[in-house]
Design a binder for these strands. Structure first.
Lengths: 255, 255
DNA sequence: GCGTGTATGTTTGTCGACAATCAGCAGAAA
DNA sequence: TTTCTGCTGATTGTCGACAAACATACACGC
């Protein structure tokens, strides 16, 4: 359906944005890493994947370098590419970066005082609350990451949003890398609610503190510190489907 | 010279790190963008550059995709790659991201209470003070960015350091993109000193506030807001060398 | 049996070549 | 003169092919 009339003075046409083949492949790869279709630590066999995608090795390798830059793939000369593993000792590094991005996003969000932007965060939070009622680990995990991403996106800063989209996948990789398999917390924590409360109250410092506490908690749980201290939290693990073989779909240049 | 004895229990050997050809090319390209050897907005002609580097187009294109992911190069299908331009209207976005990274790095640095790490920041600041005594715009600009990078690096977070290394180049690109040419401030601002003072005092909130103020100031100066308000700051511009043709050196696999 | 050295199949890294696409220019029509 | 159309040279995007490097398995010697 055609758009309604544009405001006067606005350019009649926006510059068309055509995604390149490399763009499409990179997105496909990122999705595969996020969904676990490409398992943690597994090598990327280029001929196989390029055939599945219906392209040659060259654009695939170019797209892969984007994920290398993001840290989602690691390259070892002579051995090719592997899906990155986020071991336990690197969790603090990852979550500290998330704290940096998410706390400042919250500050921007509050400073902007944009009701529409906050609404989207609230919606994402409501979906998380809904997801926790179920027992599907992946659904809960997705909803949690969606919420945190929505928070950063609502700040409206392109760079922070880009950083966060990578951090989301890295966090997922960390979950996959866990020796206990993919396990998520099946509850809304007080720190979670504190974030929302502070956002709605417009208290930037409180929001930042709540986010930092929330992510520090998450780090502690994933590194097993809580278990060491005898603290138990309600979690739910993903039941692995045996023999499920993931295959990448062909990219369609003319969708 | 062989290293001294390693601590007991540590692995006898570290995994050797061999940079790939793509790594070397990407570094070379990044340096060329940072130094202005590849001018803002200029197209990357692949045959020419690959010849200068002594490689074929394939590894060059792969390396270029890393810079695309960083936002240092932009790709338009059918038109190839260009050095990204950071126009004035995108400056707030860039500097807001810097605030996010740098303020949190300062918080980490203070929290760690690592005297050795702080020393390096102090050293970088001293070099900036020294640079400002001269009149070479590029020397001052380098020293300023080095200082900010040293601050983030001192926090010891790999991801934040990686983000910052890109942000540094993007900031340089913003300077190059300015319609007034490459201009830097020839003075140490009070907000600059306030950062150092807060770091040395171990006051995290004050450091964060000083960094935010400092970078907001920088945004205002670069967007020309200060000039509009009739506020003048002492600056020094780079005298462009006419006819200077930059050429990328061949990468050496066995240095 | 343990460790070393060798052979083999596979995968990567790199290259040159081809077709599709684009920017710039000349020429024709209004 | 101005505007539009079609051409041309150059550059990109993609592909298949080759050589080098690697992981694995096997045979040999101690």
């Amino acid at each position: 359906m055609p758009q309604n009339s544009a405001p006067a003075g606005a350019p009649a046409f926006l510059r068309v944005h055509r995604p390149s083949t490399v763009d499409l492949i990179a997105t496909e790869l990122r999705n595969a890493v996020y969904s676990g279709g490409l398992p943690v630590g597994s090598p990327l066999r280029e001929v196989e994947i390029s055939r599945q995608l219906g392209v040659s090795r060259s654009p695939l390798r170019e797209a892969a370098q984007r994920l290398v830059q993001e840290g989602l793939l690691t390259a070892i000369p002579g051995q090719g590419l592997r899906v990155a593993t986020v071991s336990e000792d690197r969790l603090p590094d990852l979550f500290e970066a998330r704290i940096a991005i998410e706390t400042h996003a919250a500050r921007i969000l509050i400073r902007n005082n944009d009701a529409g932007a906050l609404t989207k965060v609230t919606a994402a939070f409501d979906q998380l609350v809904e997801a926790v009622k179920g027992t599907d680990a992946r659904t809960i995990g997705d909803a949690d990451l969606d919420f945190h991403f929505a928070l950063v996106e609502a700040a409206g800063n392109g760079r922070l949003t880009r950083y966060m989209s990578t951090l989301v996948v890295e966090t997922r990789l960390a979950s996959f890398s866990s020796k206990d398999g993919y396990v998520v917390r099946r509850e809304i924590t007080p720190s979670h609610r504190a974030i929302m409360a502070a956002l709605e109250a417009g208290d930037a410092d409180a929001a930042a503190a709540a986010i930092a506490e929330h992510l520090t908690e998450a780090t502690a749980r994933m590194t097993g510190e809580l278990a060491e201290q005898g603290i138990k939290v309600e979690t739910v693990a993903e039941v692995p489907e045996p023999g499920a073989v993931y295959e990448l779909g062909p990219i369609d240049q003319n969708p």
